[in-house]
């Protein structure tokens, strides 16, 4: 591996100060499964690696029926994936975790790291946005919290400023009558980046949808909310005609590009298919 200086701060304050003092080529190490690849493949100039794993207070996973699921920045994807409570309560998130890279990678990779990497195709982002997750951030001026939907500003870019460190996530507890799903479309099952990912989380009253969030992955510079498609669902009785309209609206709202994995036309078409399928399944899902 290319050389870098290695730091092991013991507190968030110390880590934050290091990141400010060392400048833009200092990077946070949590899981390392993206950072070390970027260093080896020379995708990123890294002079300093700031390992935050020895900072206490970021390894907990807690559940509170009033608050929801809270987990720290050092919790691995595999830890969450294998928790029965996560599989039961957030099957959309559990599915996204199962489909992320490989078990070996998930044993190191952190979910918060996957979020901070801010790939438009990151599997964990759509279900967390659809469930209204909140990200907690240490800043030199104090703690901040922000809806995850507002965290991303572009491919690989977030609202984190130099010296800021994301410390954890809260996923609100689901409403009693609700359904949620994440559908990933790729060319193969394992070690695959999403060609398109669609997450739908909705609240129900019988066969009426009372609230809906739709998040579209890999079809824009960030994961997108399909707000107009969500509005079509809200307060309406779900019929096949409505589901078709919602699919068409999601297709209109996404902004895919063509690349090595798929053409823009194909991606847009799959947004329609997956959104229809996801709405239907989320309306029927019992949990």
């Amino acid at each position: 591996m290319r050389r870098f200086a290695y730091h092991e701060p013991k507190t968030l304050e110390e880590a934050s100060r290091l990141l400010v003092d060392l400048g833009e080529n200092a990077h946070v190490l949590a899981g390392g499964t993206d950072l070390f690849v970027e260093i080896r493949e020379r995708l990123r100039d890294v002079s300093d690696v700031v390992n935050i794993k020895n900072i206490p207070g970021m390894t907990d996973i807690t559940w509170d029926p009033a608050v929801g699921l809270t987990f720290g920045a050092l919790v691995t994807a595999r830890q969450l994936e294998t928790l029965p409570g996560v599989q039961r309560t957030y099957p959309n998130f559990a599915e996204a975790l199962r489909l992320l890279a490989s078990i070996q990678v998930r044993n190191r990779a952190t979910v918060v790291g996957n979020l901070c990497r801010a790939s438009p195709s990151a599997d964990t982002i759509p279900p967390l946005i659809a469930d209204g997750a909140i990200i907690h951030i240490y800043t030199p001026k104090g703690m901040r919290r922000m809806p995850l939907a507002e965290f991303f500003t572009g491919p690989g870019r977030t609202r984190l400023e130099r010296g800021d460190i994301a410390t954890g996530i809260v996923i609100p507890a689901p409403a009693p009558d609700s359904g949620r799903i994440y559908l990933k479309h790729g060319r193969r099952k394992a070690m695959e980046l999403a060609t398109v990912g669609v997450a739908v989380s909705l609240d129900r009253d019988g066969d009426t949808c009372t609230n809906a969030r739709i998040a579209l992955g890999a079809v824009g510079p960030t994961v997108l909310r399909a707000s107009a498609a969500e509005a079509l669902l809200k307060g309406r009785k779900i019929t096949d005609e409505l589901i078709a309209q919602v699919g068409a609206q999601a297709m209109a709202e996404c902004t895919p590009i063509s690349n090595v994995r798929a053409s823009a036309e194909y991606r847009r078409s799959m947004v329609g298919v997956l959104t229809r399928r996801a709405v239907k399944t989320a309306m029927e899902a019992t949990q």
Partner: peptide, 26 residues
């Protein structure tokens, strides 16, 4: 050497990981 192939899989504290994606100091 970038975590795609699994040839370097070792078990650390009971968990399989890619040894290429972990620092020795960790």
């Amino acid at each position: 050497d970038v975590g795609d192939c699994g040839a370097c899989t070792v078990i650390v504290d009971g968990q399989p990981v890619n040894a290429c994606l972990m620092l020795a100091v960790e």
